[in-house]
């Protein structure tokens, strides 16, 4: 079973934090700091799941999500959105799905990250598929 998980985030600290959590829980973290590199990684490494920072500058997160969901080869890879915005305002959902043009993401993780919750969410998503 493919346990590779791709972290796409422009902040190196966030990549380090997420990588440590994943490594400690038996996953293989790989990472990219922008959407373009992220898509290259998706195609070459075929990760089982993607942790995507939606708030990356230059629309990087939103653009990558769109590309993932519109490509037959990648649209079934579960995507967990990492966000600093408190959920409930509908802001993120709207931004991610482009107003229901795209399917909703498989999960959300809010910063500051709670390592146990992250692990449980990833575990549930991967065992369910």
């Amino acid at each position: 079973m493919n346990k590779k998980i791709l972290i796409v985030d422009d902040e190196p600290e966030q990549i380090d934090f997420a990588s440590t959590i994943l490594e400690e829980n038996g996953y293989i973290p790989i990472s990219a700091t922008n959407g373009m590199d992220g898509m290259k990684m998706v195609r070459s490494e075929k990760p089982a799941l993607i942790l995507l920072d939606i708030m990356m500058p230059r629309q990087g997160g939103v653009g990558m999500y769109r590309e993932l969901k519109q490509d037959e080869a990648t649209k079934d890879i579960p995507v967990v959105i990492v966000t600093g915005v408190t959920r409930g305002g509908g802001f993120d959902e709207h931004m991610v799905t482009q107003g229901d043009e795209l399917p909703a993401p498989d999960g959300y993780i809010e910063k500051p990250m709670n390592p146990d919750a992250v692990v449980k969410l990833i575990h549930d998503l991967l065992s369910g598929s």
Partner: peptide
Amino acid sequence: NGLQGGVYM
């Protein structure tokens, strides 16, 4: 988030 990450690491 950064602080928690640091502490976790």
